[in-house]
Design a protein around this nucleic acid. Structure first.
Lengths: 340, 340
DNA sequence: TTGTAAGCGTTATCAC
DNA sequence: GTGATAACGCTTACAA
């Protein structure tokens, strides 16, 4: 009747539930039950169904199933970018936890622009996901309205606010910045310079850093703003520019470990010993931070935990459970190593 | 009639095509056409439809659309892991190119095990994707059979074979290894040691390296096998073990830039100058390779091109175009820098 | 425990 | 150019 659209293949239409039912000598409803709720079907019948499934090579059509049940078992993940070492561990953990519960991830990359995010949402919602994971807490009004209207469980991640759209897993970037600033000030650094990416969460951390230094009567000596994505190259170049412009500083506070690694490398290339002549701090505690030479003093974020807990929250919410704590602060940990 | 399953929301069912049709005073079929093929509908009618869409807040149901049209506009991506700096750029490029054409990525992570891949495939196919991207060319028989049966366009990526399932974008790892080996041998290195991850494509590259050294009458001095995922730590530790065991070598050939960076760092920690006392080579040309100190001699792979071309192949194939070149070798480039 | 009937929200097809 | 009708393949709800 219908032939595959793919030229390389001559195949009849895929077997349906009815085909399985026919070969099993049962009704399609019984087959459906045997597949989805076998405990409601006599074992012998289940066995017959399984045999028929194998015989026909049946693969359920989730499009039809989702339409009928209005449960798609799809979770939409909205991230600014995937090639970001920070997010990628969260995504992996999220995916693993979700896959285990039978959900599949729909990947939606917005590229750090809010308008694109709003656009994306229509695309996402058209897929009728059972849940949505949104990176960050700043969204356009349209997005908020449309999402709330859709009545889909939502988890915002990687940030903190008392008023999330629905649920939230993250931490306060301002507090993390604060913690880092205090730590460095208390270690005696008094002429800090910043190498920073200008994204929203980065800016919050920066405010935290600056505020805490101020509390110690310290002002920022200089600041270098670098574009996203952060890289070793940008870290090196930023420090080079800072040093060449004659900035006097004793610690370089970087908005990420990657920038810190670059800054350290540039310092070493200039025969500056780290941390003796110039200290450097990072953020994120990426895998290399502990093994860099010198090991990078940084702020540890449990990136996988964000993904894992977001998955749990979402799955529970979809299951209709009451979420006792819809706001989860996973916090952060100051990690003192050798670079500062 | 039906209430949202999400407790926080009291919302009626989402507006359907019929709702839009009713408010616009048209048939649902006309609304569908106005949305999908506006050129077949009178402009005035299209305008009426658009107004009704806005008024109702209509968002199409892709589940229903996909079921009816048997086009899901979903592309399934199967990768061993996302938190791999090699794949992640490919994924990003693939996603971007696909999103532009109206496709959404379904993310399926298999974790380097072939059996898991076979399992995953049922999950994937149940979603009725319009196309599938498979990482690698080694799959279980079941997977091959099931996929071919599904008559879905498939692109295998990141490898090379004259007999792909369907289409292919990648390069020969063996040749890449060969090229690297020749390069190093010709530079005069004669006592190579290997630091290598034991994945399938890595093994192929290793064979290439070993074979080309052999052609120059050189045998591998020593080899350290490290688990996945590669990391700076593993690179350091592997070199440390190699050196501590008294291995005599003049170049460390690493299966990835990440390992190379670690090896370089360990060498420097031991006051060994790179490349004078010990040379190190990597693979992949990750962003940091060019800016490392010393810059890493490596093999460049255009990772984004793999994703981009895979997307084009898939989209064309879905569109019913005849694919002139279903096998695309994107090749590789030897990049001589300072570390070897 | 199994079966029947009626949707789910779209699009294909054919008629007007 | 627009509309009526019948799928698409499954699940819900109810009957047996």
């Amino acid at each position: 009747m219908k032939t595959g659209k793919h030229p390389r293949q001559i195949s009849a239409r895929a077997p349906t539930l009815d085909d399985v039912a026919r070969t099993a000598g049962l009704s399609s409803m019984t087959v459906s039950r045997a597949l989805n709720t076998p405990q409601l079907v006599r074992p012998a019948t289940v066995a017959k169904v399984m045999a028929a499934v194998t015989a026909t090579g049946y693969i359920p059509n989730a499009l039809a199933g989702g339409l009928a049940s209005s449960r798609s078992r799809l979770i939409a993940l909205v991230v600014p970018q995937i090639n970001n070492p920070m997010f990628v561990d969260t995504i992996q953990a999220l995916n693993d936890a979700l896959a285990q519960r039978g959900y599949t991830l729909l990947l939606c990359v917005t590229g750090y622009s809010e308008t694109a995010e709003a656009d994306t949402v229509a695309t996402i919602l058209s897929r009728r996901p059972d849940g949505i994971v949104l990176t960050g807490i700043h969204h356009t009004q349209t997005l908020k309205r449309v999402i709330m209207q859709a009545a889909v469980p939502v988890v915002e991640i990687w940030d903190m606010t008392p008023t999330p759209l629905d649920m939230l897993v993250g931490f306060s970037h301002e507090k993390a910045g604060n913690c880092l600033g205090h730590f460095l000030a208390q270690k005696g650094y008094s002429r800090p310079a910043l190498i920073w990416t200008d994204d929203r969460r980065g800016r919050q951390r920066k405010q935290g850093v600056i505020a805490s230094f101020h509390q110690h009567g310290i002002t920022i000596s200089a600041e270098s703003s670098v574009p996203l994505p952060a890289s070793l190259q940008l870290g090196r170049e930023a420090l080079a520019a800072l040093l060449d412009s004659g900035t006097s500083c004793d610690v370089i506070v970087c908005s990420s470990d990657t920038l810190a690694q670059g800054a350290i490398m540039e310092a070493q290339a200039r025969q500056l010993s780290v941390p003796q002549q110039l200290a450097v701090s990072g953020f994120g505690d990426l895998a290399f931070a502990a093994w860099n030479q010198p090991a990078i003093t940084t702020v540890h974020i449990d990136r996988a935990a964000i993904g894992h807990r977001a998955a749990t929250l979402l799955a529970d919410s979809i299951a209709g459970l009451t979420i006792a704590e819809p706001i989860i602060d996973i916090g952060f940990t100051m990690v003192e190593r050798d670079s500062a």
